[in-house]
Design a protein around this nucleic acid. Structure first.
Length: 424
RNA sequence: GUGGGUGUAGCUCAGAUGGUUAGAGCGCCAGAUUGUGGCUCUGGAGGCCAUGGGUUCGAGUCCCAUCAUCCACCCCA
């Protein structure tokens, strides 16, 4: 127990963490280019926020939340997704009273009490954006193009952007009615899940993965066929912008996302070779959410990309990230009495910005050399009694084995010089 | 929440039909005479065989339970 991580969580170790850093850096970089600013919200929120925000009938709220009561008898929940907290923060901090739109990005852990499997964990990580305050379809296109640009830059190929429109409060009631009309006569052939959906959220039936339900739903009405004129215009316009930007996409009229707050645009990005959990990101427009959370009627749109799944997909595709390099210099000593002198040299190197290390196990010179080689040190400085008396040390290049005596004073400068020349 | 697979050294795995002190490769540490790594050789450390019950004269091996892990369903990232 003591040495086991909690179920569905992961340690990200050296060797793996470089991929995470690359993803986070890329997010920062792209966000700057698209003019999104970072926001950091708490990792837990009042439970009520997610119930209201994500929707009472969603799987997330019904069975996946990490909820507990704190010492003050408040019910709090580890955030299962990023949108509701950002909306809360936007309202609480009155960001709606500044210039609009407000464009924000975030990275961080999310928590869902699911049964773990490939690409699915109880603590997982997302990078995402939210943009508030504009209805403009160009913003939908911007958000999607940003997500696609992210995959491109990270080196992930074979990703497909699926888009759909799930309508708005104007046209959705009619659609729901049509769906009920269509499905009710065949209710007994639907899976038990879908029979419940018929009452709670008929829209989701057309997205059911059950083969039986798929067969029945084949000819069911889709949102796309029943959009009101505003929704239709918006959707067409989004498609136009995507085409103008040269972003390939497929219209998937059956795409219905599991979060209740989406209106108009919904999208999902799939990667090949990922097994069952093939979605590496998704998002959509949520024009009612802010109001639902107690704010004014302000539209929003956003996406979230799954870091673990992106890494899985990258590995699947054989994309390699550079491993973290070893230190520039290892300072070895011939005899233990030279430790203090060597330590001084080491300290000077570090102050000059040269990454360096030394032995902490009292090893022989031979063992120190072996260690230096294993940790991939580029150079070794060997401190010997004879040389030190003449204020000299040996500088050895590990790749070639070439070595020469250099004055202690010049060691740092010499190393800097050589490091600079070999990176060109 | 449901179903299936798997749990032996830090890692990858051997350990027929139950039978003495549980093995290999890699990794780790040390050595191979004078103050120098990568190759080679030698030695060493490291296992309550996931945990708890049972069957048996005897269990790493058979049975049950628990836990963990992997995969799939549901759903999502």
């Amino acid at each position: 127990m003591l040495t086991n991580r909690p179920r569905g969580t992961n340690d990200i170790l050296p060797g793996q963490v470089e991929k995470w850093q690359l993803i986070e850096e890329t997010m920062r970089c792209i966000s700057a280019e698209y003019n999104y600013q970072e926001i950091r919200t708490p990792i837990f929120e009042h439970t009520e926020l997610f119930i209201r925000g994500v929707g009472e009938t969603t799987d997330i709220v019904e069975k996946e939340m990490y909820t507990f009561v704190d010492r003050g008898e408040r019910s709090v929940t580890l955030r299962p997704e990023g949108t509701a907290p950002v909306v809360r923060s936007y309202l609480e901090n009155r960001l709606n009273s500044g210039p609009q739109p407000v464009k924000l990005y975030y990275t961080g852990p999310m928590f869902r009490y699911d049964r773990p499997q490939s690409g699915r964990y109880r603590q997982f990580h997302q990078v995402g954006v939210e943009a508030f305050g504009s209805h403009h379809p160009a913003l939908d296109a911007e958000v999607m193009s940003m997500a696609m640009e992210f995959y491109r830059r990270i080196g992930l190929v074979d990703v497909e952007l699926h888009i759909n429109s799930v309508g708005c409060p104007e046209c959705r009631p009619q659609l729901k009615e049509k769906l009920c009309e269509y499905f009710r006569p065949r209710e007994s052939d639907l899976c038990s899940n879908c029979r419940q959906r018929l009452v709670k959220n008929p829209l989701r039936i057309i997205d059911c993965k059950n083969p039986g339900c798929q067969e029945i739903a084949k000819d069911a009405p889709t949102p796309l066929d029943h959009l009101c004129s505003d929704c239709k215009e918006h959707f067409d316009s989004v498609c136009e912008y995507l085409k103008a930007l040269g972003i390939p996409f497929v219209i998937n009229p059956r795409l219905v996302r599991g979060l209740d707050y989406y209106t108009h645009t919904a999208f999902e990005i799939m990667a090949k070779g990922l097994g069952a959990q093939s979605s590496v990101g998704g998002g959509g427009r949520y024009n009612r959410l802010i109001e639902e959370c107690g704010g004014p009627s302000i539209p929003g749109i956003g996406y979230a990309l799954g870091v673990e799944r992106i890494i899985l997909a990258l590995e699947q595709q054989g994309v390699e990230t550079a491993p973290s390099p070893g230190p520039d210099v290892f300072v070895a000593i011939l005899t233990p009495d030279l430790k203090a002198d060597a330590f001084k040299i080491l300290s000077k190197l570090r102050k000059k910005g040269i990454s360096s290390d030394q032995d902490y196990l009292g090893r022989s010179l031979k063992a120190q050399m072996k260690y230096a080689s294993k940790i991939n040190a580029k150079y070794t400085i060997i401190v010997g009694n004879d040389e030190l008396e003449r204020e000299m040390v040996i500088l050895r290049e590990m790749d070639t084995g070439e070595q020469s005596e250099v004055p202690v004073e010049d060691a740092a400068a010499k190393i800097k010089e050589r490091l600079a020349s070999c990176t060109d």
